[in-house]
Nucleic acid binder design. Structure first.
Lengths: 247, 247
DNA sequence: CGACATGTTGAACCTCATCAACCGACGTGG
DNA sequence: CCACGTCGGTTGATGAGGTTCAACATGTCG
């Protein structure tokens, strides 16, 4: 990576690692120049708050690296992670400055921020940009609804397996481009056990137990409490209770 | 209502009951004329399929009256309702003909259909229309995530109460325009117990038991197994485990 | 009236939450 | 250097909330 060593002003959008994947992918040279003028990189360590649900969001952002979690909390403290954002995902809501979620860095995170007003102006000028954001939002909606099925109807074992499959698919997608699933997979867990529990609607104890159960059955191998190997993704997918294509 | 007795071709968009609320609300006279040319009313009885998740969606639609449920089903038959659509809501997904949900009439339903290709052309011509759809999609995303909190973290009692509060708020919103919540409310349940269970991630037995428990405690009155009265919405909202404003 | 779908109630069981103890890694300060 | 507290994770014992299975009630429609 060259980017890390370049001084901030040279971190131009046209060289960005996530360009062509992020919302800026549809923009031409002129638009990118405009975008570059308002974009600003930020690095965050794990646990740091990105946006609070208390106050208005001052910016939009693209996740460049790391994992961001969106959470909702009840008055008595019960928590639910309602969305995970990975590398080219987009953070923030158009049309309304209100932000109903608490956004927090689950791992160390790098994001690319756009001030609210300037970015909205860009959206209005470039319909392509709006279309892209729209498409992403639709994808997020699909993902949210998939997760509703998981939260409402799946067993603890299926929940944990589904989460692991989510990561396994992601890592396969990033590493090789082939979409076949019968391959082995290896990845880092971007969440602590507590976060996994909050994502799956379980307790940390149940998550831990299910993980050891999967380990004992040889379905996964746990290396570092964070690094996980899945020797046979098909087998795990079957336990996750999903068709081999579903998320 | 005049509409019901008018022959189909006279059911013009400019007279539509949900105009100004639906996606067409932003359109001017000229646009409405265009829309009218492609729109087509359909009536469906409860239980009828609107769109299958198996095949591509051939149309978009606005819900004019009644309730539509979006469901996801696992291979073994477990089901989860992932969205409820009421009167001015929009049905269908732009940019992709694939439709990952099974859409079914929960009650008798009236919808206004737009063929896929013609409507997409309209979207591209009128950015306002796209913005409106985008906003609605963002609202749906928020609702889905609220429901994730419910499915993942709430107790059966809280789930049932939350659902009742959803309907109570809706009925108050429709009847009077005042946003105060301490009022009594009355409404029809648009779902069977089975559907309520599938919406809340419970079994029908649990739903039934929680309803009778709420009834016994005087928090609700059940008239017709379908007609429900809530004497004190604040009290019910407290049991639903939500701040008085949240969905 | 009988038949069928829809809803209720009861009893037994089971999954998962709760409470608690324990482990290992890490960082701090005496 | 070791004692100490903290944090993240694991494991065990126990119990409650919700499911399951089954019987019964109610409502609706021919």
């Amino acid at each position: 990576m060259m980017h890390g060593v370049l001084p901030e002003p040279l971190l131009r959008c046209e060289n960005c690692a996530v360009r062509n994947q992020a919302v800026c992918g549809a923009m031409d040279a002129q638009q990118i120049t405009r975008l570059n003028a308002i974009a600003r990189r930020r690095k965050l360590v794990a646990g740091q708050t990105i946006m609070s649900d208390q106050d208005k969001a001052e910016f939009f952002a693209n996740v460049v690296s790391g994992t961001v979690k969106l959470t909702k909390t009840m008055p008595d403290g019960r928590q639910q992670i309602v969305g995970l954002l990975f590398s080219p995902d987009f953070l923030g809501r158009a049309y309304s400055p209100n932000n109903p979620y608490f956004a927090e860095a689950a791992t160390d995170v790098e994001i690319c921020c756009f001030p609210h007003d300037a970015f909205e102006k860009l959206i209005n000028e470039f319909p392509d940009l709006q279309s892209r954001l729209f498409e992403r939002t639709l994808d997020e909606l699909d993902a949210a609804r998939d997760w509703m099925l998981l939260l409402g109807r799946k067993t603890a074992e299926e929940k944990v397996s589904s989460f692991l499959m989510l990561l396994a698919r992601r890592s396969l997608l990033i590493n090789c481009a082939e979409p076949q699933t019968p391959q082995p997979s290896q990845f880092e867990l971007p969440l602590t056990r507590t976060d996994m529990a909050d994502y799956l609607g379980l307790t940390i104890e149940t998550v831990s137990r299910q993980l050891t159960k999967l380990k004992t059955r040889g379905l996964i191998r746990i290396v570092n409490n964070r690094l996980v190997q899945v020797p046979d993704t098909e087998r795990l997918a079957a336990i996750a209770g999903q068709d081999s294509d579903a998320a």
